[in-house]
């Protein structure tokens, strides 16, 4: 146990959903915690943030000066940084706020007289501020994939993320194609690895895992047009999790 790698689980602006997914690792939860030395997890323990740890697992989007400062400290301390969930990996749904003018979004929530809070930024992915070694994309993360990536990180292996779009995996489930039914589906450009969960359960892909590195965007653009979806419609759909086009790929 003395040699077990020490881990800190850290959250920025998020809904805690990915941390909840970590607590959902049952019945293996206790066993997993035995393999690592969990030094810090605000959600579950009153202990304070330690000076040293090997692995930082970070959930949430970067939104404040405090987050940026924290990330710089984390990067100096941890030898491995794992970004988990859409918020941390692409900016995710929180980054949608960045598509609205700052004054407008404050007025919409806090009234016309509200002033923009100093030190508050449009939410962005962690990799906009520090180098990220491993990603676990998705909203929320899949617990099995999280454990697999954490295992690879502890062993110093590559991230092992699939690079092709969702379609092939969706086909293996025998799903009827949403595009052929007239629905807009982001599966043709979205990173696979989710076992086509949503499409198999009857909902088109909304792109929570980011763009697939192997996706042919030019071809996809033509496919969307051929199926009657104008470019604005595709952009609106893509914005849901991927407003930051440079980071999401």
């Amino acid at each position: 146990m003395a040699d077990a790698p020490s881990v800190a689980i850290i959250s920025l602006a998020s809904d805690f959903g990915c941390q909840v997914q970590i607590t959902n690792i049952d019945p293996g939860l206790l066993q997993v915690l035995g393999l690592i030395d969990l030094r810090y997890w605000q959600l579950t323990s009153s202990g304070h943030m330690p000076e040293e740890y090997d692995v930082a697992v970070i959930e949430g989007a970067v939104t404040t000066d405090e987050h940026i400062e924290l990330l710089r400290r984390v990067r100096e301390t941890a030898s491995v940084v794992v970004a988990i969930g859409s918020c941390a990996v692409t900016g995710g749904i929180p980054a949608l706020a960045g598509t609205i003018d700052a004054d407008c979004r404050f007025a919409a929530v806090y009234g016309e007289d509200a002033t923009v809070t100093p030190g508050l930024h449009s939410p962005v992915a962690i990799s906009r501020y520090i180098d990220v070694d491993y990603i676990v994309p998705g909203c929320p993360i899949d617990t099995t994939e999280f454990l697999a990536v954490l295992g690879r990180a502890l062993k110093g292996l590559s991230n092992g993320m699939p690079e092709q779009p969702l379609c092939a995996s969706c086909k293996t489930h025998g799903n009827e194609c949403f595009m052929r039914r007239g629905d807009l589906c982001l599966g043709i450009i979205t990173r696979s690895g989710c076992d086509a969960k949503c499409t198999t359960l009857g909902r088109p892909c909304t792109g929570c895992r980011g763009l697939a590195p192997d996706a042919n965007l030019e071809a996809a653009r033509k496919v969307y047009a051929a199926f009657g979806h104008d470019f604005d419609e595709v952009v609106t759909a893509l914005d849901l999790y991927n407003t930051d086009r440079e980071v999401c790929r």
Partner: peptide
């Protein structure tokens, strides 16, 4: 927690 603006995001 930083403000998150969900009420503005859905508009």
């Amino acid at each position: 927690e930083p403000a998150r603006f969900f009420e503005a995001m859905v508009v």
